[in-house]
Design a protein around this nucleic acid. Structure first.
Lengths: 190, 190
DNA sequence: CCCAATTTGTACCGATCGGTACAAAGAGTC
DNA sequence: GACTCTTTGTACCGATCGGTACAAATTGGG
C-alpha cells in the first residue's frame, strides 16, 4: 500500500505526458503501457476504471500542483508583485518555456470529454487568484479581473502559437509582455 | 466531374466539423460517414488517400478562406483601421463569437500530425499580414510585430478559455480589448 | 519461513479502427 | 437503348482498440 502510493506519482506523470502528446482519444493503452513501463495488468490494478480514471487523476494532480505552487502564492504573498512574479516564473518553468503544452487547454479544445467541470475549475481558480493579486497591487477591481482574463487566456494562446511555430521564444516574449503590462501603475492604458 | 466539384465543398465542411469536435485521432471513419451522409465507398472515392487527405484538404480550405477574407483585406485596404476592424469582424463571425474552435490551433496542440508546415504557414501569414496593417496605421515596426503576435496568440487563447468556460463572452471581451489596445496612437504604453 | 495480499504478465474478448474489393446502380453521350 | 464512366453500398480485411480473466510471480508481516 505504501509502495503503491510511492510509485503512483511517476506513473501519473508518464501518463500525463501521453495525454499531452496525443490527446484523450489518441492516448491508447499501448502508448500508456509503453510510456509507463507497466503491463495492462498493473495499469488496471492501479486504475481499475481504465483510461477515464487515469485522465481524471492526471487532471486532479495538475490542479493540485497549480493550487499549491501558483494559486496559493498569488493569494497569500503580501508583497503585491512577488506573488505575481512567482507565478510567471513557475509558469515558465512548468511549461518548459513554452515547449510543453497545457493539458487543461488541450482537453478544453478536445471537448466531448467528461472533464468539463475540472477544466472549468482550473481556469476560473487561476483567474480568480490572479485577479485578486492584481487588485491588491493597486489596480481597480474591474481592471484586475479584465487583466487576469487577458493573461490567463494569453498564456494559453502563447502555448498554442509557440507549439505551432516550434518557437519557444514566442511564449517567453508573451510572458515578458504581460510583465510589462502589469508594471504600469494604473489604468491609463485602457 | 462538375458535380463532384460542386458537392466537394459541403462535404469538406462537414468533415471539418468532425475534426474540430474530435481532433485528428478522434475523427473516426464512422463519425465521418455519419457527418457527411456518405458511405465509405463515396468517401474514399472523393479522398483516395483517406483520412490524411481529408484533413489536408480541410486545412487547405481553411487557409484559403482566411487568405481571401482576412489576410488580403489586412494587406490591401488603404484606410489603416478598416482592414483591421474587418479582421476582427470576420474573425468573430468565423469563430461564431467564440463558440467554434480554431482547427489550426487544435491541430497545433495535437502534435504528431503531418500538417506542421500548413499550420505554421497559417499562423505566420496571419501575424505577418496583421503586423503590416498595424505598421501602416502608424505604429513602429517593432511594436507592430509584437502587437500582431500578441493578438494572434491572444485570439487562440481566448478561444481556449471561452470553450473551457462555455462562455462566449470571454472571446468577445478579449476581442474588444484588442480593439482598445490598437486604438491608442503610439507606443507610450510599453 | 510461511502465508496472505498485492503486483505482474499473458492470453483473450467483442468492438471498432482505417482501408480495400467489387459489384450494383446512376448518369451522360451518342 | 447500348455504351462508357462515375458514384454508391456492402462485405470484408488485418490490426488495434479498451477492457477482462486469471494464474504466476512478487512482496511484506508474522
Amino acid at each position: 500500500m505504501t509502495s503503491s502510493r510511492r510509485s503512483r506519482d511517476p506513473v501519473l506523470q508518464a501518463i500525463a505526458e501521453v495525454f499531452r502528446r496525443h490527446g484523450y482519444e489518441g492516448a491508447s493503452l499501448s502508448r500508456l503501457t509503453a510510456a509507463t513501463g507497466l503491463g495492462k495488468g498493473s495499469l488496471y490494478n492501479f486504475f481499475p476504471d481504465g483510461k477515464e480514471q487515469m485522465a481524471a487523476e492526471v487532471l486532479a494532480h495538475i490542479q493540485c500542483w497549480f493550487e499549491a505552487e501558483i494559486f496559493v502564492p498569488l493569494k497569500e504573498t503580501e508583497g503585491p508583485l512577488t506573488g505575481i512574479e512567482s507565478m510567471f516564473r513557475s509558469t515558465e518553468q512548468y511549461f518548459q518555456s513554452g515547449q510543453r503544452i497545457c493539458l487543461m487547454g488541450l482537453m478544453a479544445l478536445d471537448g466531448e470529454t467528461p472533464f468539463g467541470t475540472q477544466i472549468q475549475a482550473y481556469f476560473s481558480d487561476w483567474q480568480a487568484a490572479l485577479a485578486l493579486a492584481i487588485h491588491s497591487s493597486g489596480k481597480l477591481k474591474e481592471e484586475s479581473t479584465d487583466l487576469a482574463e487577458e493573461i490567463v487566456s494569453g498564456i494559453q494562446g502563447a502555448l498554442v502559437l509557440a507549439h505551432a511555430q516550434s518557437d519557444a521564444g514566442i511564449f517567453l516574449r508573451r510572458m515578458q509582455s504581460f510583465r510589462r503590462r502589469l508594471a504600469f501603475p494604473c489604468g491609463e492604458l485602457q
